[in-house]
Design a protein around this nucleic acid. Structure first.
Lengths: 146, 146
DNA sequence: ATTTGTGCAAATCGTTTGCATCTGA
DNA sequence: TCAGATGCAAACGATTTGCACAAAT
């Protein structure tokens, strides 16, 4: 029984998205999809998404948030970004692109694919295909000017 | 009371390495350092290193392996590589370089820095410095030829 | 002497799972 | 109707931590 208001038009659009991904259309999934996809590209963790959902008045369990994130990722609606041992980040931007990561703030920032040019790549070991090339630029807060 | 045999010459060399890094020279650290640094570049996890230590007859605890890996990393003797949510990898190669990662086999492979050419990098957000540029090439087992 | 390291076991934390119950097709 | 989804709480697995004891400086 979500307390979140979603227009019928939007519901239909999200339901379609879930359907195409091969996922059943359920209320928790619709609501989480709404939160995830309503405002451009985002980075969430299970924790931040659950918080957001609860604050929005949704009655979703932690388990459902985890399941949903994993299913969305398996279905290609989200991409997992591995920058921090402590927690999993999910990115609503599923196009090829890269990331800045500010460790001190646990903050991810997208980098458009064409802003990075990987000019030379080594051959992959025999028997293996490249699945994805990830560029992660780790950032530090700038030291005080001397 | 480690059962591992380390020559005095090697001990001295490792002790020096620890000393420079600002770490006290203790038997567990010497022994783990020996395992880590004796044969070129390696990738270990706490689990694989502990296994190796126990098989070598060392009496080290899990806690010490974790502590040692973290201290070595903080001291710059090891670099942490984050490719898998499940476990932390440590790389004895601390020079700038990149990685292949075979997810299905949880296997890391070094890529020499000069085998990758990142020709264009975006400006970092104002107030931040680039700490490190990481390129991770995720590999899949090649699909059967059709 | 005092600081730092070590081992052990318990604690922590993100994530997963088992199972009874509900829901969507 | 009934496979699949959800919630709850318990389980899990990697990592960390508290504390008593041992080793380094």
């Amino acid at each position: 029984m979500p307390r979140l208001q979603i227009s019928d038009k939007r519901k239909t659009r999200l339901a379609e998205k879930l359907g195409i991904a091969g996922l059943r259309v359920t209320e928790p999934r619709l609501a989480l999809a709404h939160l995830l996809f309503r405002h451009g590209n985002r980075h969430v963790t299970a924790e931040t998404l659950l918080d957001e959902a609860l604050r929005a008045g949704l009655k979703v369990s932690q388990a459902t948030v985890y399941n949903t994130l994993n299913q969305f990722q398996a279905a290609g609606l989200l991409r997992q970004v591995q920058v921090d041992q402590a927690r999993s980040y999910f990115d609503t931007n599923i196009d090829a692109h890269h990331h800045f990561y500010v460790e001190d703030e646990a903050r991810l920032i997208d980098i458009a694919a064409d802003a990075v040019n990987v000019a030379k790549l080594p051959d992959s070991p025999a028997g293996y295909d490249v699945e994805r090339v990830e560029v992660i630029i780790r950032l530090d807060k700038k030291a005080a000017k001397k």
